[in-house]
Design a protein around this nucleic acid. Structure first.
Lengths: 189, 189
DNA sequence: CGTTCAGTTGACTAAGGTCAATTCCCGTGG
DNA sequence: CCACGGGAATTGACCTTAGTCAACTGAACG
């Protein structure tokens, strides 16, 4: 059984029938490293669950790439703004490692929720988690200095430094790779 | 008729009955300047529509106050993260001017949507707009330099500078009041 | 091997922050 | 009506931090 279904089941026990319906709508994507899940300007037509691998979300900008967020196994990826409004996305989402993503189209999601009301709970939960995530992220960017953001990340998610190319970590912290490198040599002894 | 109901009606025409139900749940708050709508640590129990006045949302921090966002007439205010999850809010929302807010409690909102399915559309719309707003805000903070954020704000919302104390504008731009003052003298001639 | 790209290091620069002094504005009370 | 007080905004001098640019190192991969 796919990890993602297992995890959904753990949080929201579903009937066998609902479960089957969900599985039948799942589209499995294998993304190579650097392959895009969502490109700026295109409408985000589906929401994905990362089964395996990692991805990053970033805003394209003439000078620098602003990497907003990382996603790992069991995360939900997509631009909710674009997905819900059906307007072109202003963000890009791209695989960092070779990844496997289970994707559900908007139409399927709507049909599923209509036919299986228990899934509404799940969808609400996902939206809620997304709000919490963005609020925390915004707080970090507004309240803390670059150096403090680095220290916090090191404290809370040290494995990110092992797994993600440092240029993307720098971009996530909204600093240059050079500055990240200096922090590392300064604080990692 | 209250402005907010008028505006809802313009976007999502509602039956007279739905309309009445909505009105009956509305709680009207008169907030004095500097009075809090939501305080950090408390659960955001209702979502408000600003009928009149202006408010700001900020993250409290030992050193500086990070003012994340402004809200004016016809805006929706509240922390969706806290409202949906029923966890303590990490943000504060406070009136800048004397304001009138039409508030709806979580329980009322849920009941209303259940009894009047046409309101689901409205609630989806509000959530969608919120996602769009936060994505744009994040983009601005990540992609643009302080100076560019200032210029963009001046271009797009010049009246904010008339209406909002500059210290809050500075905080919104994530710069110090001194720096904002220098930009102003530099660019406003 | 040699090419390439990520990461590091160093010298320098510039942007914005800090701190302190001053001015401006506005409400209050004599 | 004017004078005063207090907070907001401005201004100036100085400092700190991260950005820039360029050179170098090192690992990965053909």
């Amino acid at each position: 059984m796919k990890r993602i279904f297992y995890n959904i089941h753990k949080i929201f026990p579903l009937t066998e029938e609902t479960f089957e319906a969900l599985k039948n709508c799942a589209r499995i994507l294998h993304l190579q490293k650097n392959e895009f899940f969502l490109t700026e300007g295109e409408v985000c037509s589906s929401i994905g669950f990362i089964e395996k691998g990692s991805m990053r979300l970033f805003y394209n900008s003439p000078d620098r790439e602003a990497c907003n967020d990382f996603f790992f196994e069991n995360s939900v990826v997509g631009s909710f703004a674009s997905f819900l409004s059906e307007m072109p996305s202003i963000v890009n989402i791209v695989a960092i490692e070779n990844s496997e993503v289970i994707a559900f189209s908007k139409k399927d999601i709507n049909d599923l929720i209509e036919k299986h009301p228990s899934l509404k709970q799940l969808s609400d939960f996902i939206i809620q988690e997304h709000f919490i995530r963005t609020e925390k992220r915004e707080e970090a960017l507004l309240k803390f200095s670059p150096e403090l953001r680095f220290k916090n990340l090191l404290e809370e998610h040290p494995k990110i430094f092992k797994r993600i190319p440092l240029q993307y970590v720098a971009s996530y912290l909204n600093i240059t790779p050079e500055t990240l490198s200096r922090y590392r040599s300064r604080f990692l002894v």
